[in-house]
């Protein structure tokens, strides 16, 4: 048995330590936000956060995750109460087929947690590893910009408000 620190809760998993995190999330825990795209760490559809950094969960086995906190798109909010990034993606209608979007959001989340005030160039550079085959990149960039701006305006209005989604 392996204990994962998942979206702020302890989660017991019955899986071999060599299993990629993505398989455990989707197959064992029914957290289907992260997607299986290429399985080779090339597309970013499986991006989740581990220890505060965006990682490709298809090439990240449980054995290296350890006790580091794992955050998935389900940890950002729900359909009823979407988080800041989720709201921004909805506002910009940034999804077409939507397959890449959970990964996009988690990569963006990692950026905003480290750098709440990114430049457009920072966003492009940071997001460049995640691919979208529908071609909604411009909307995705706008959504990340919108999320960053709304976090910024929230923190100016309420200086003590928690940053991030």
């Amino acid at each position: 048995m392996i204990v994962l620190n998942l979206n702020g809760r302890q989660q017991v998993v019955d899986a071999d330590a060599s299993t990629p995190l993505l398989y455990v999330l989707r197959d064992d825990l029914q957290l289907n936000g992260a997607k299986f795209g290429c399985g080779l760490g090339q597309c970013g559809a499986c991006t989740v956060m581990v220890g505060g950094t965006a990682v490709l969960s298809c090439i990240t086995p449980l054995s290296v995750v350890g006790t580091r906190p794992v955050k998935t798109v389900e940890g950002l909010g729900s359909a009823d109460k979407p988080g800041v990034l989720q709201s921004a993606f909805i506002a910009e209608q940034a999804a077409q087929c939507g397959y890449c979007i959970a990964g996009m959001m988690m990569r963006a989340q990692a950026l905003l947690e480290k750098n709440p005030n990114p430049s457009d160039a920072d966003i492009r550079q940071h997001m460049s590893i995640n691919l979208c085959r529908c071609g909604t990149h411009m909307r995705i960039l706008r959504a990340v910009r919108r999320a960053a701006d709304s976090i910024k305006s929230a923190s100016t209005e309420h200086p003590n408000a928690q940053r991030g989604a």
Partner: peptide, 14 residues
């Protein structure tokens, strides 16, 4: 050719 980045996936110790 292509190799994925393991940044973040592996800790410094690993």
């Amino acid at each position: 050719r292509w190799m994925p980045p393991f940044e973040g996936s592996l800790t410094d110790q690993q």
